[in-house]
């Protein structure tokens, strides 16, 4: 059996003591994220790509474009597929093999934020209704884990999509043809995910691995450009109070604004 990461009792005691005073082990404010670095265009063979470094957490996302068949219930919409792999090299606790429960939740929560914010205009990706549409695959490689995969992965996916380009497709005699024209993937919005952990009665933004190993509960709230909530996910085997839920929404809107600026700067 694989062991989980256990935080040293004396470090956890220091962490809890500091939190009472509103401080953190790495000297961040409670609502402060770690240094965020976004690099785009790092994989030339991908239609779009980004490497996000959030503290010591590192994620690479790559966009691939293909044509496919639409779902029967959305015959006039392109497909968006978000997939994440927590690579075995990313931490001593990760293992090779089919995606874990954790990796699937990660991909789905990131997907939800992108989808529900209508970041990608899927109607523009319909080629022949009911028959042929553009499929946008976004695959994420989790390279190094130091907590908060949700946000790092989300920023990587958003940045990769924001910079993605594809061949222009045309329909001729009921047949889809790829042209040599290059057009951007139709991206409208910039959803931003902000994840918080609760340790005792404190909510902290962007928990690192040590904080995650000490947390009681985790909540992710994704907001769009207008400050609307578009996705959220509570995690871990504990609860959150209604007051904390609303605090988390306000924090996500506030921190999200700042991060949206950083993403838009990086994808210019």
């Amino acid at each position: 059996m694989k062991k989980n990461y256990v935080v040293e009792t004396i470090r956890k005691a220091q962490m809890v003591q500091l939190l009472v005073e509103g401080k953190r082990m790495d000297e961040r404010a409670l609502d402060q994220h770690r240094p965020l670095k976004i690099e785009t265009g790092i994989i030339q063979k991908a239609n779009g790509s980004a490497r996000v470094t959030l503290g010591n957490t590192q994620v690479i996302a790559g966009v691939k474009i293909a044509t496919g068949t639409p779902f029967p219930d959305t015959p006039d919409k392109g497909l968006l597929v978000v997939n994440a792999e927590i690579l075995p090299m990313s931490s001593p606790y990760a293992e090779p093999g089919p995606p874990s429960e954790e990796a699937i939740e990660l991909a789905r929560v990131v997907d939800r934020g992108i989808r529900e914010s209508e970041m990608v205009d899927l109607t523009k990706l319909c080629l022949i209704p009911g028959k042929s549409v553009v499929t946008v695959f976004v695959d994420c490689n989790i390279m190094n884990v130091d907590g908060n995969l949700f946000d790092a992965t989300s920023y990587a996916v958003v940045s990769a999509l924001r910079t993605a380009k594809m061949k222009k497709y045309i329909v001729k005699d009921d047949k889809v043809e790829a042209t040599d024209d290059i057009v951007p993937v139709p991206v409208e919005r910039t959803p931003v995910s902000v994840t918080m952990a609760r340790i005792g009665d404190r909510l902290i933004v962007d928990p690192n691995a040590e904080e995650e190993a000490s947390m009681d509960m985790r909540v992710t709230i994704t907001t769009d450009d207008d400050g609307n909530v578009c996705a959220s996910q509570k995690g871990e085997a504990s609860t959150i109070s209604p007051a904390h839920v609303l605090e988390a929404v306000d924090t996500s809107i506030k921190v999200g604004k700042e991060i949206r600026k950083m993403i838009l700067e990086a994808v210019k």
């Binding site: 063979k45 997939n83 695959d139």
Partner: peptide
């Protein structure tokens, strides 16, 4: 292991 985006045509992650 090859990342799905590492090649011209997207590769299945398995």
């Amino acid at each position: 292991h090859m990342a799905p985006f590492s090649v011209d045509e997207r590769k299945n992650p398995a």
